[in-house]
């Protein structure tokens, strides 16, 4: 027993000694596809802050499904900054009083420093010749897209498809609904997250086309082989705006507001915009986008607000319990 206590004492001493020194530490709670992006951004920001202020900043990352991450922050995950997949998830945090209600107006461009869009990833040479949205519902086409209930990216996919169909049929909701329902009939696997869907498509060889964020498609191409996949840009798609915000209640408690605000502003700087572009997110600064024009083909896009009012309405109409996705999703 004595030996055991001694061991316990030793163990706790070991772990206590290894605790980080007293520096400024930020926790950035983000969604799945931004792992590579923020690894680079953090390194650049830490170096810049050190050069300007002489203080060492440590930035810890937490990644997961966007909705789950928002919920964790509400449940007490001490995030200083949230960088999520869609505004609705940050709204959920704000509605619990952790973030000021007007968060989206505190930063430029709807508080989203970078954008993306929804594209198709197909197998090399595009053997099923998938060119645009209507091709997805042709016979013998299998479409991979994750579950909009559990994945933020999947909600963008759903809304992109709906927006296309709505425009195609002159605003006829019934026809849009029929198209999206047909689309989900072609989905054999409904993964819980965007990365899971990419793995199913790329690693398991399931499906003919992956509907994905452009950033994810480009990354998959780089990580998993340029000679295995092609990217197809549809005639029209959605402008995905992943937003960022400082979590007011937490930064005041941790006394980290200055660093946290500098961090989110840094995301708009030319240096950070170039890093974002390198990580396949479309930058907002036109000078930087001009530099990366070859990587990002011109896409005809619409925004959430153009077609659906805002995220809150889109969420309630399509993804709430018993709403449209529950009525027409796969299995119906």
């Amino acid at each position: 027993m004595k030996k055991f206590l001694l061991m316990l004492g030793l163990l706790s001493a070991l772990f206590a000694a290894a605790a980080p020194a007293k520096d400024v530490t930020l926790l950035n709670v983000s969604y799945d596809p931004t792992r590579e992006l923020y690894r680079d951004i953090n390194a650049a920001f830490v170096a810049q802050w050190k050069a300007q202020h002489g203080d060492a900043v440590t930035i810890n990352m937490s990644h997961g499904g966007s909705g789950k991450q928002a919920r964790s922050v509400v449940d007490g995950l001490p995030a200083d900054v949230v960088t999520l997949a869609l505004a609705n998830d940050i709204d959920a945090v704000a509605s619990r009083g952790l973030i000021a209600k007007d968060w989206q107006k505190r930063l430029p461009d709807n508080a989203s420093p970078y954008t993306s869009t929804i594209v198709f990833l197909v197998r090399k040479g595009n053997p099923k010749s998938i060119k645009d949205w209507p091709d997805l519902i042709k016979p013998n086409i299998q479409v991979i897209t994750p579950n909009p209930k559990t994945s933020g990216g999947a909600r963008w996919n759903f809304l992109a498809a709906w927006g296309y169909a709505l425009k195609q049929h002159g605003g006829n909701e019934t026809k849009a609904r029929a198209y999206v329902q047909a689309l989900y009939q072609h989905v054999p696997v409904l993964d819980t997250g965007a990365r899971g869907a990419t793995n199913t498509f790329a690693q398991r060889g399931v499906g003919d086309v992956l509907v994905a964020w452009e950033s994810e498609a480009l990354l998959a191409q780089r990580e998993l082989g340029k000679d295995t996949f092609d990217i197809v840009v549809p005639s029209i798609s959605i402008l995905a705006e992943p937003p960022v915000a400082v979590v007011d209640k937490n930064v005041d408690k941790h006394d980290t507001r200055a660093v946290a605000e500098a961090y989110v502003k840094f995301l708009y700087s030319p240096q950070a915009q170039a890093i974002e572009a390198k990580n396949f997110y479309r930058p907002r600064l036109s000078a930087v986008s001009a530099q990366f024009a070859a990587q990002f083909p011109k896409v005809n896009t619409f925004t959430i607000n153009d077609v659906f009012g805002d995220w809150h309405q889109a969420q309630a109409k399509f993804f709430a319990d018993g709403a449209i996705f529950d009525q027409i999703g796969p299995g119906h």
Binding site: R35, E36, N60, M61, S62, H63, S72, N199, Q203
Partner: peptide
């Protein structure tokens, strides 16, 4: 867990994270 890398990720969670980074 909260999935804070290096702080609250246990081995099984780390496995999932690496897998999701295409680091098979």
């Amino acid at each position: 867990s909260g999935h804070i890398r290096g702080l609250t990720t246990t081995m099984p969670l780390e496995v999932e994270m690496l897998y999701n980074e295409y680091n098979y």
